[in-house]
């Protein structure tokens, strides 16, 4: 049954309807709830690392403020903007999917993916900069914080947490790009239609979540303390 005719009626048994659900609506609700529960899990996952962050931030406010100066706020802000726009295009993609506008859906998914990739490229430049400045702790790399030796030890903790948090976030972005690619294929081959847009919707939930994580990380890592005690 082609997607065009499947919209006709429930009785025709939509190809995406699994055997253990009575209707697509039920199936979609279950899928959405599942994604929400998964996102709660994700909150706790990042929460553990943020807990470490907040404890050390309160112990070593000076070092954290000092170290956050070495992050590139401009690039961080650009990335923030990129992700916010990608959230918008993702929302447009969901809208297009619900209306069954396949062309628009594909276009918006593509834009979202391009923006996501842009974020990762910028992040890559930032990581490279850390490498050049010897601000990568561990890995046997030289760590140089001689400008403010009093913070040398604890700045390493800041950068450790920075790499853990942004690394996990980047990993989530990469997973997100994978999901978007998959959704693009489904959009292109007609699996997604007006009645079966929930895969796009729940992928959208995930994408927005990953964006929101960044909205938290950006101020926590780049901005807080920048103009407070850390400024010399």
């Amino acid at each position: 049954m082609s997607p065009e005719t499947s919209a006709a009626a429930e009785h025709h048994h939509h190809p995406a309807l699994a055997h253990h659900f009575d209707s697509l609506a039920e199936q979609n609700e279950a899928a959405t709830l599942g994604m929400w529960v998964f996102l709660v899990t994700e909150v706790l996952f990042f929460g553990g690392a943020l807990m470490a962050y907040s404890i050390y931030r309160s112990w070593y406010p000076g070092a954290f403020a000092s170290a956050s100066h070495h992050l590139d706020v401009t690039l961080g802000a650009v990335n923030t903007a990129v992700l916010i726009v990608s959230s918008l295009t993702m929302a447009m993609a969901v809208h297009a999917a619900q209306l069954g506008e396949r062309g628009k859906l594909k276009a918006f998914l593509l834009i979202t993916m391009v923006l996501g990739a842009t974020f990762l490229v910028v992040k890559g430049f930032e990581y490279h900069e850390k490498y050049v400045e010897h601000h990568i702790p561990g890995l046997g790399l030289p760590f140089d914080y001689s400008a403010e030796p009093q913070f040398a030890a604890t700045a390493q903790i800041f950068f450790s947490i920075y790499f853990v948090l942004t690394g996990l976030h980047a990993l989530h972005m990469i997973v997100g790009l994978g999901i978007m690619t998959w959704m693009y294929i489904w959009a292109a081959n007609g699996t997604i239609d007006k009645d079966y847009s929930s895969p796009i919707e729940i992928s959208g939930l995930y994408w927005h979540f990953v964006d929101i994580v960044w909205i938290f990380l950006f101020p926590l890592l780049y901005l807080i303390g920048r103009h407070a005690s850390g400024a010399h």
């Binding site: 050390y56 702790p137 561990g138 890995l139 030890a153 604890t154 903790i157 947490i161 853990v164």
Partner: peptide, 12 residues
């Protein structure tokens, strides 16, 4: 990576 998050010698 030998980070120092739990290492007392490095403030962890």
């Amino acid at each position: 990576f030998s980070f120092g998050i739990f290492d007392a010698n490095r403030g962890g």
